[in-house]
């Protein structure tokens, strides 16, 4: 079944794949973070809040805007960057060395990381491998843009 990006359906589909791969995510360990994903389109943004707890994505919702004080961090980028990342994951089965989140976001050239509290920002790195593996589950979806 295809899903479109950006949408809550896309994240819900990743959530379902995460449940199927419970063993793998348990092995990676607790993931306790709430973060935002912002996708820029024609000067506007579609914003999502993802709430992870223990080993699961507990909740995802679309919001009009994201208050940085309510989340640990926000991954923000224009739609073509997200699309390139998702298509790369589909092609390779996982993000290749130029398309993983840290590489895309490192100097803020492609994805930007916004945060209010550096402790929240550091949670991206504390749970990095789980977050990367979560996005890598896109390889199992048919995504339209």
């Amino acid at each position: 079944m295809g899903v479109s990006f950006p949408s809550t359906d896309y994240f819900e589909a990743l959530k379902a794949r995460m449940v199927e791969q419970d063993e793998k995510f348990r092995r990676l360990g607790y993931i306790d973070t709430t973060f935002g994903v912002a996708v820029g389109q024609n000067g506007k943004a579609r914003n999502f809040i993802l709430e992870f707890e223990v080993f699961d994505l507990k909740n995802v919702r679309e919001v009009a805007s994201i208050d940085l004080k309510q989340v640990d961090f926000v991954l923000e980028g224009d739609s073509p960057v997200w699309r390139e990342m998702i298509e790369n994951i589909k092609r390779n089965g996982q993000a290749d060395a130029s398309h993983d989140i840290n590489t895309l976001a490192h100097f803020g050239e492609r994805l930007k990381i916004r945060y209010d509290d550096p402790d929240g920002h550091d949670k991206l790195y504390r749970f990095m491998e789980s977050i990367q593996e979560f996005f890598d589950l896109s390889s199992k979806l048919d995504v339209s843009f």
């Binding site: 993983d100 840290n102 550091d122 949670k123 790195y125 504390r126 749970f127 990095m128 491998e129 990367q132």
Partner: peptide
């Protein structure tokens, strides 16, 4: 990626 997880926890 794996070492940074531990390091971020220490920080």
């Amino acid at each position: 990626r794996l070492v940074m997880q531990d390091e971020a926890r220490h920080v």
